[in-house]
Every structure is written in structure tokens, then in C-alpha cells.
Design a protein around this nucleic acid. Structure first.
Lengths: 193, 193
DNA sequence: TATCTAATTAGATATATATCTAATTTTATA
DNA sequence: TATAAAATTAGATATATATCTAATTAGATA
């Protein structure tokens, strides 16, 4: 079982309006306005929630004339609802549990000396990105840096600042405009598989 | 089944760190620092999550010397995890679904005229609070009102502004200091059963 | 094609919350 | 009683998100 799927499922069900919608749909399909009416909310709000429910595959739609009917995909609930139970009774394994952090730590320990400098730049992409993330975390968000400043910062880790600076850009850790650098938000960073 | 409990359970499980903690504890009790270490987070963060897990009765603690061990309350998971499943397969009823809104609407329709004025102040506490909530929603949050302004506002609904103004205070819809009034945040409002 | 209805998107606002550092509290023990 | 270790609390920051109104899109039909 994947951690992400499980979290997404529970997060989605962790809202009273969405539970209400699921409950309504469990009695049969309804269209948007009907749901809005029954719950005393506006159509945009219902759209918002239905998007989330669709993201986890919990509802699907069918169009009739001008009206979109929403159907509950009961199988998903029946399946997901008991996943947690299986996990804690050791009937199922969860990926990415300790592993994630433990692995990062191993990589950081392997490539970073006690003085904070890199022993080398990892050749494996996955490891390299872990190192880069670590380095970028030392920069302030929202601050505009000169290229010279970035170079100086990187030199604290490794002499080949030019290569690393370039990698920061290509892997979207940073953003550059007219020679000014700024840290990107984490969701833009290259994905570590 | 109560809506609130169900939502709280899923909301709590809708976070990767908490799922990780639950997973770790499913293999046996651990103390705070151990959890923090395994997940690469600081003790305060772990405390934060353990509070949430304790709120829904999912973990309990036992002290040994200086160290607090956290135990998983498996029963709760085994029970809650399948609740949703039961609900959608109609094996269990959910309170407060449509009911909630429908009932409010009925009360509002019953006591408020088309011009927005109250026909009367409901005698039943439950209904009265619904009316008060409705009235208070017309006031701005964070704005300081003179008593005179409040009176004027209430007169839009009913002549007996003094009684209603007093009820706003006793039921915690508003807060008064030195004759200045301000709307309280909704979580302080009197609870409608 | 013009018009109606349902749905969605865009954008704003308010609230919640995950995480951290620093400070404080609690308990054990030398 | 003084010190050390573990936990918690306080406070700050950043991000996410539930809801609304207004504007737009999509589809149906006269």
C-alpha cells in the first residue's frame, strides 16, 4: 500500500461536507444543484468538493441533457476504508514509512563531512537530489540573491559552484531572472523517486 | 453514528506523519524521542501529532521513569476504519446529515418574515439559538460596535433589543468590554444540540 | 442564432494546521 | 538540592483549504 493514497483518502473524508455528500450519494445519484440545495451550500462549493472526491476516484459522473449526475464509486470506499485496519493488524505493508527518512539520512551521512562540506557530488540522480535539497534548505525563501552570493554559498559545500548552481536551476530548486536568484517553493523541486 | 466523530477520525488520519506514527506504534510502543528520531522530526512536532491522536482516543500513554511510552489503541482503529463502509452500505445511519440544514431552514422560515423581521423570539432554546446565529451573521467580525449601534442593528429584527442584546452576551455570540461590543468567533457560540 | 440552465473557473477571504526554535515544566537521580 | 533528560508549551511562519461572489463556459432548445 502506498502512503500517499491512504493519506489522500482520509484527508478527503476528513471534512463534514464531503461525508455528507458521500452519504447522500450512497442513497442514489444526484446532480450538483440538488446536492447544493440539500446541504445549503452554493454550487461552486459543491464543485470544489466533487473535484476532491473525484481525485480519489470516489465519484464519477454521467451527463443527461444539461445536467451532470454524480455517482458514488462504492468499491473504492469498501476497499480503502479497511486498509488502515489491515495495516495495523500487519496484514499489509506500508511503503515509505521509516524508509524515507532513514534513506535520506544514509545518503546525507555518506556524502557530507562533519564540517558540512560535500565529499563529492553523487552521480546517482536520486542521491544527488537529496544532497541538493539539503543544500537549498540553507537559503532563505523569498530572498533575492546575487549570483555572486549564490556562488559563495555553494562554495561552503563544494568548489564546483558553477555546476551546482546550474543544477539548482535545471532541477527547479531556484529560479533565475536577470542574474537574480530566488528559492522556489518545495512543490516545484525535482521529484525524488 | 455521529458525524463529528467520523470526520475527526478521518481528518486525523489524513496526514502522512500521523499515519507513519500509527504504523510505527502498530509494531509496539515507543517513546517520543524515538518517534522523532525515526521520522526525522523534532519532539515538539511529535507532541503535536500525539495530541491529535490522543484526541480521538487512538493512543494512550504509560510512564516509565523519565520516559513516556505511547501505545496504540488498536480497537479504535479496527472500529472506526469500517464505519464509513457500514454507512454507505446502509448498515448504519448517520445523524446530522441533511437534517441539520433542513431543520435550520424550517426554523428560520418559521420565525422570520419576508421583510427579515422576527415574528417572535422562539421560546425553545434550540430554535432561539438558530435565530440568534442568523442575526449575528449580519455583523462584521473584528469590528468594534457601540452599544447604540448594536441596538439599532437588533431593531431591524425585533423591538426588544435589550433582551436580545443581553442574550448575545450570555450565549457568547458577542463580547463586551467598557460598553464596546464585538462578535466572538463561531467556536465560542452557544452550542445548538 | 439567441437564450436559458447547469456547471465550472477565478479570485478573495478567513480559518486551520504542520513545522520549527526557544522557553518552560516535569521527573529522576546524583 | 542541583543537574540532567524528556516532554510540553508558546509563539512564529508558511501553507492549505473551505467557502463565497462574480464571471465564464458548455450544452440544450426554441
Amino acid at each position: 500500500m502506498q502512503l500517499n493514497r491512504l493519506v489522500a483518502f482520509h484527508k478527503t473524508m476528513g471534512d463534514p461536507t464531503r461525508i455528507r455528500i458521500v452519504y447522500l450519494l450512497s442513497k442514489g445519484p444526484l446532480h450538483g444543484q440538488a446536492i447544493a440545495g440539500k446541504l445549503g451550500l452554493t454550487p461552486p462549493t459543491i464543485t470544489h468538493h466533487l473535484h476532491k472526491l473525484r481525485d480519489i476516484n470516489l465519484v464519477y459522473t454521467r451527463r443527461e441533457k444539461n445536467t451532470v449526475y454524480y455517482y458514488l464509486n462504492e468499491k473504492i470506499i469498501l476497499h480503502q476504508a479497511v486498509t488502515l485496519e489491515k495495516i495495523i493488524s500487519q496484514k499489509e505493508e506500508l511503503e515509505e514509512m521509516e524508509q524515507d527518512y532513514a534513506y535520506r539520512k544514509k545518503v546525507l551521512d555518506a556524502f557530507i563531512q562533519t564540517d558540512g562540506k560535500l565529499k563529492s557530488i553523487p552521480a546517482q540522480r536520486k542521491k544527488k537530489l537529496i544532497i541538493f535539497e539539503h543544500m537549498v534548505k540553507g537559503l532563505k525563501k523569498g530572498v533575492k540573491y546575487e549570483e555572486k552570493e549564490i556562488n559563495e554559498y555553494i562554495k561552503n559545500f563544494h568548489d564546483d559552484f558553477a555546476t551546482i548552481r546550474r543544477e539548482f536551476i535545471t532541477n527547479q530548486y531556484m529560479y533565475r531572472e536577470n542574474g537574480i536568484y530566488e528559492v522556489n517553493p518545495p512543490e516545484m523541486w525535482a521529484k525524488i523517486e
